[in-house]
Computed example of a mutant assay.
Amino acid sequence: MQNAITELEELTLNGASRSFLKETAKWCKFLSIMGFIFTGLMLVGSFFIGALYENLPQTQAMPFNVGGMMTGFYLVCGLIYIFPIYYLYQFSVKMKKALISKDNDVLAKAFEMLKSHYKFIGVFTIIILSIYILAAVVGIIGLVASS
């Protein structure tokens, strides 16, 4: 007789599960390729947007270089976004390979890549929400101080 832990370690994929995972891998590959393309466009476009901001007429003197700041912002955003796209692409490739070869180790690596993708997106979301909350607090303090 097997204990509960051993029973939980045995998980088989039926035909429907394999089909769903195969379709999911295809969509993930499509989305990751589109992500790579748009991230590349963002990185290339970051230099053009900086030049665009530099050529706009200045209505008032800016204490900093707006064009350079925009270039830096888009470069950082593009570089950050490469990681979750890479994880998603690796999931799709490894999942397809695991379904063809029926290799549990490759399947585990595929799910590890999916976990990394969602972990990155989750941590990044927490960071962005924290920045929004901090900006709101600073804004409220600024309103209160100016009244």
Rank of each mutant, 00 (worst) to 15 (best):
R18Q: 15
N14F: 10
Q90I: 01
L11E: 14
G40S: 06
G15W: 02
A108H: 07
K97Y: 00
L114H: 05
N104K: 10
L13V: 08
A135F: 07
L107H: 03
V138T: 07
L13W: 12
K102W: 05
S32Q: 08
N65Y: 05
V123Y: 14
M70N: 11
F30T: 14
L79P: 01
F48N: 09
V138M: 10
Y89T: 02
F91W: 10
Q2S: 13
K29E: 15
A61D: 08
E112T: 10
T24I: 09
M34H: 02
Q60M: 13
L31Y: 13
G35T: 08
W27P: 00
V138W: 04
I37V: 14
L99H: 05
S130Y: 03
G45H: 04
F38G: 02
L31V: 05
Y53T: 04
D103S: 09
G67C: 06
N14S: 10
F30I: 15
L75S: 09
Q58A: 14
V144W: 03
Y86E: 01
G142F: 09
Q60P: 00
L99I: 11
R18K: 15
I140W: 03
T39Y: 02
M62D: 12
P84V: 07
D105P: 00
G122I: 08
N14Y: 11
C28W: 01
W27Q: 07
S130N: 03
H117P: 00
V138I: 15
L99P: 03
V76C: 06
T6M: 12
L99A: 09
G67F: 07
S46K: 06
E54A: 11
L13M: 15
G122R: 12
A108S: 13
W27G: 02
I127R: 03
I133F: 13
F20P: 00
L52Q: 09
K109A: 14
V137D: 05
I49F: 06
K26W: 06
F20H: 14
K115A: 08
Q60E: 15
Y81C: 03
L114P: 00
S17Y: 07
Y53G: 06
I49C: 01
V93K: 14
K96C: 00
L134W: 08
V137S: 01
F47M: 10
M42E: 10
T6N: 11
L134G: 12
A136I: 12
V123P: 02
F36Y: 15
V44H: 02
A135I: 06
V106D: 02
V93T: 14
L13F: 13
I85L: 08
S101V: 04
Y81R: 04
I82F: 10
I128M: 10
L13P: 01
A51W: 05
